[in-house]
Amino acid sequence: MGTLNLAEFNSHLDQFITLNNGSSREKWTLHKSDAGLYAKQSVMVKWKEESINRQAHITYNSTYQVPVLWFNFYRRGGDPLSSDEVLSLSCTINPQSTLSSNPSRSCPSDPSTSSVTLNEHPHLGVLFYHLHPCQTPAIMREMTGKGNYIASWLSFYGRPLGLSVPLSSFPGSSLPSLPLSPSTSSEQPLDDGANHENHMEEAIDIEDALSAMEDESGRGQTSSSTLTDSSLPSSHSPTTRSLDDTRTEGFSQRSIHEDRNENTVQP
């Protein structure tokens, strides 16, 4: 199932929230605006000694017929973290870690994070980051396992943000397996201190389950389960990774983006 129609989205979202809220401490709530239904989660996370508010929203994109993950991080008064700060939350969406002095440290083009864009939230009209949905249908088509679409989708797209998806969100133990080898996406972006203790159980469960599925499919790579804020993935050998590799990946990415103009920001 690569895509969802609006009715399916609404019902899967509703079901996901019920399943999630039954066991996860990170609650989702359902909201309605003139633009339709969306889900919202607002939790506190620790970021460099600071307690900040992480907002994650799930909306429907009718062009691609898939859910879209929107997020932002706010300080107390509503002042958001800067783009650089947001991107520093995760290596995979953080080009800062790929300094020119060391081109071997290029981040792999993980589709869940290579498409981060700042744009107007479709329901709220304020600036939010989102993960562009252009690759979602293809990724979701590759996902095996039935069950709740939103849960499968979020288990992939929510990882760079540290969004946990409890096992109970996958009814009938039909866990999804990931089509790609997200060699770095298990990296927890936030040093969320006490949060670890509370979520460790869930986090480990889903990690184990997912990496088990990856291993079965023979496509898995070692996923780091250490939860750090800045450690870099060692997914590519520095000696073999050259500038040309990066560029090749880059250009293949571009060809995907070129047929839609929506990946650029036009607030």
């Binding site: 991107l87 969406i93 080009p95 790929t98 300094l99 020119s100 081109p103 290029s106 981040c107 083009s109 290579s114 498409s115 981060v116 500038l243 990066t246 560029r247 880059g250 250009f251 990415q253 571009r254 983006h257």
Partner: peptide, 8 residues
């Protein structure tokens, strides 16, 4: 461009 294509 930097994030997606030319990190440096």
């Amino acid at each position: 461009i930097k994030w997606r294509l030319v990190p440096q």
